[in-house]
């Protein structure tokens, strides 16, 4: 039996290299859109410049400002792992805002 291994364990070493100076320049992340959000945004995928310190939730509000009924609830995935909305985005990551699921 294979050892259970979770590639999405929190606080893994991903992106922890260096650790010297904070980058001051804008970062670039890839945002991929699915389902109802793909329709709202009108795009499958885009490269987005974000300021250092931007969180996943902040980017969601920035790209899809809440309408009169508020924002659609989402889960956040960075590099294909679920993360809390207050996760700070790093340069080069892939971000997906996961709208309500309908699988099964």
């Amino acid at each position: 039996m294979s050892e259970p291994h979770d590639p999405c364990e929190p606080h893994d070493a991903r992106g922890a290299s260096g650790g010297a100076a904070e980058p001051a320049a804008a970062l670039v992340v890839t945002v991929r859109w699915f389902a109802v959000l793909r329709e709202r945004r009108g795009a499958d995928e885009e490269q987005v410049q974000v300021a250092p310190g931007t969180t996943a939730a902040a980017l969601y509000r920035q790209l899809l400002p809440p309408g009169p009924q508020g924002a659609l609830p989402v889960m956040f995935a960075v590099d294909r792992c679920y993360v809390p909305g207050d996760t700070v985005l790093e340069d080069g990551v892939e971000v997906v805002f996961v709208p309500p699921l309908g699988g099964g």
């Binding site: 939730a57 902040a58 508020g70 889960m75 709208p99 309500p100 099964g104």
Partner: peptide
């Protein structure tokens, strides 16, 4: 469709 099990955040 929205599964009842889904527990997203409303940011």
């Amino acid at each position: 469709k929205e599964n009842a099990e889904f527990a997203g955040e409303e940011p």
